[in-house]
């Protein structure tokens, strides 16, 4: 009886000493956590991380997104948090004047000589309600024009849910302006 009690005590002390040794070793190791918000995670550690989506500009014009307004992203979004509105604008009609010999005929020939009407799609608005987004990435993968990508905006915090209803077109414009400014400064 006493023997087993003694053994138990001995085992307990050994366990304790082993535990203390490990704890002491770890005590001397450097800090591992990042003290947010004084420090943030290094950008290279964010590779692949998904922030909310943003629009990709056309290579020739940073103010215009590549978006073709097909609405596939809106369709596939499981939470229905994307809203795209686009409109078709007919380009100025270029009318060739009919041959002067035919101009006086009662038939309306002007329409026949006009080339087929060209239309252009303009994105009126591109809104994202980030409150419902689950960051699955289905919209980015489904975009046929490659117009969506994940941003690196990860430190988002607010008291109001309205702050997470993004207008992505405005965001693109801001980014483009920032880029222009940067380029200007660079050239100076």
């Amino acid at each position: 009886m006493i023997g087993s009690k003694l053994k138990e005590t001995f085992d307990g002390v050994v366990s304790l000493l082993i535990g203390l040794k490990i704890t002491f070793k770890n005590f001397l190791k450097p800090n591992l956590t990042v003290h947010y918000p004084r420090k943030t995670v290094k950008p290279e550690e964010l590779t692949g991380y998904r922030g909310h989506i943003e629009l990709v500009p056309k290579p020739e014009n940073p103010f215009v997104p590549r978006c073709i307004g097909c609405g596939l992203c809106r369709d596939i979004c499981p939470s229905g948090c994307i809203e795209v509105r686009s409109k078709r604008i007919a380009e100025e009609k270029e009318i060739h004047t009919p041959h002067f010999g035919l101009q006086d005929t009662p038939l309306d020939l002007t329409r026949k000589v006009a080339p087929p009407q060209k239309t252009k799609i303009e994105i009126v608005s591109f809104e994202l309600n980030y409150n419902y987004c689950s960051l699955c990435g289905l919209c980015v993968q489904n975009c046929p024009a490659g117009s969506l990508r994940f941003s690196k905006d990860i430190y988002l915090a607010s008291f109001s849910s309205r702050d997470f209803e993004f207008d992505l077109l405005k965001r693109l414009e801001k980014q483009a302006q920032a880029r222009l400014k940067e380029e200007e400064e660079w050239t100076k």
């Binding site: 692949g48 960051l135 993968q141």
Partner: peptide, 26 residues
């Protein structure tokens, strides 16, 4: 943390992954 960093690299998330797709991975 280390595993989450590794998985974040490919899947984009740290906890609630949505990584596999029909016929492969994303």
């Amino acid at each position: 943390e280390i595993v989450m960093d590794i998985l974040q690299r490919v899947s984009g998330s740290r906890l609630t992954y949505c990584y596999y797709r029909f016929g492969g991975v994303s």
